[in-house]
């Protein structure tokens, strides 16, 4: 079979999906990011529990917290998208439904990331105005 492949195609090593090990690798990279970030997130949630609205919104508006929360949410949705994609590929057999679902979860993940990013930035700007 390999006789049908050009040397260039083989050396690129991208396979029939044309993305090589990218899906697999990004799943691991986002996992490596999420392992410490989720510990930070839980610590942040516990440290700020029971706080009133003003305390929590200014805590999220702190630059370091905002950056870490943004990183957590971005990595989370990238990781979730890659994982859900595999679940859909494995269990959803009608091709049209499979593709529709994959596009929908991609749109959903992007909208979730964008809206939480704007929300966090808004809290940062509010916190800056207060000082």
């Amino acid at each position: 079979m390999s006789a049908f492949r050009t040397p260039l195609k083989i050396v690129h090593g991208l396979g029939s999906a044309r993305e090589g090990a990218n899906h697999w690798w990004m799943q691991r990279v986002t996992a490596m990011a999420l392992a410490p970030l989720s510990v930070w997130f839980l610590w942040f949630a516990i440290a700020n529990k029971g706080g009133d609205y003003a305390a929590l919104s200014s805590a999220v508006g702190q630059p370091l917290n905002a950056v870490l929360l943004l990183a957590f949410i971005w990595a989370l949705f990238h990781h979730a998208y890659l994982g859900l994609q595999v679940v859909i590929e494995d269990y959803v057999h009608p091709r049209a439904l499979e593709i529709t679902l994959m596009v929908l979860i991609r749109f959903g993940a992007i909208l979730a990331v964008l809206s939480s990013s704007i929300a966090i930035l808004r809290l940062v700007f509010i916190a800056v105005e207060r000082t």
Binding site: V60, I73, L76, G83, L84, S115, L123
Partner: peptide, 24 residues
């Protein structure tokens, strides 16, 4: 691992809801 991953995708949407509500 798969099942909890799918559930955590829903949890992630809950987190977005909380963050957006906080900023609203």
């Amino acid at each position: 691992h798969r099942a909890t991953g799918v559930a955590l995708s829903a949890a992630a949407l809950g987190l977005v809801w909380g963050v957006v509500a906080l900023a609203t």
